[in-house]
Structure formats: C-alpha cells, structure tokens
Amino acid sequence: MTAPADLARVASVLEGLGTAEAVPGPRIRFTTTAGNLREAVRRALSGLDLDHFIQIGSVDTGKAIELHYHFTGPHRAVVTVAVALPREGTRAPSLADLLPPAGLLERQVHDLMGVEFDGHPALDRFILNEDWPAGEHPLRKDWKPREGAFYGGVRDAAPGPGGG
C-alpha cells in the first residue's frame, strides 16, 4: 500500500487552492473554486495516488450548485474535490481530457443541473430526449413542469401520421 491520503497530506498537496476537511465516511473533502478546479484535480491525481475516479456528485442546495468529484486510490481513502457554483450562469471547466469517464458524467450533470462545462468536446444531450424543452433542467430545485409544455413521449392532442 502506498502512503495514506490523510488530511495533512491532502492539505499540503493542494496547498493554496482551497480548504480540506474530514467528513464522515470516512472521506476527505477539499473545497476549491471553479477557477482552481482543474489545477486541484491535476495535482490531486498525481500527488495523492488517486487512480480511480468514482463520480461527479451534483447537488442543488437552493443557493448554489455544488459539484463533488470523488476519487479513490490504492490507499482506499476517498478524496472529494468540491466546488460550489452560482445558480445563474453556472459554469465549470471540463475535466474530460484529464479523466475520460468524466465526459459522460459531465453530460449527465449538464442535462440535469444545467452546468456548462467549458472545454468539453461535445456537451450534447445525453439523458434528456431531443424534444425536451431547451433550458429546462429537471433536477434543479425550482424546476416544475410547465403547464402545456411538451416533455417528450407521445403527444396526446396531436394525432400521429396516419392516426387520429
């Protein structure tokens, strides 16, 4: 086993980019800013022996959109790099080039939470259907289906071709 990724080590490797704290799990959460996200992940990957990218956890707290990038490595400790983004004009740098699996997960977060990932090669619809109204992100807290809007599937009112 390699050196454990404990709180002190996380703090020293990622020094100057944000704050580290231990959370139950046990897990180490490192909170940074959108501007420092790429640098923090790059340093964490090389400096903390994190070879397994678990997930991008996304939360809408009502005040901010939070992204939690969870990693683990041969030391089995879980390290989270977290950022909080404003709910309006939510943007974050894409990590698809650093972490291949992030490509799919970012598209998922983009669809559901409305986060724009700068530098993503193809931030297309991934899990919402093509006739889902643009700009609606269903996992945002304030999202409600609009009266009369069409969210995909079969249109009740309009007869299909040849039917009716």
Binding site: P100, A102, G103, E106, Q108, A122, D124, F126, I127, N129
Partner: peptide, 21 residues
C-alpha cells in the same frame, strides 16, 4: 444507467471523449 435518461438519438459524442482521442 438510464434511470434519469430519456433519449439521445443524435449521440454525436462517443463515450465523452474527444474526436482525436
């Protein structure tokens, strides 16, 4: 996997990697 998914018939991106990759 698609518990939150609907449909993506375009699907230009393959596996979220860049074209060149």
């Amino acid at each position: 996997t698609s518990r939150v998914s609907l449909a993506d018939p375009e699907g230009r991106d393959r596996g979220g990697m860049t074209w060149d990759e």
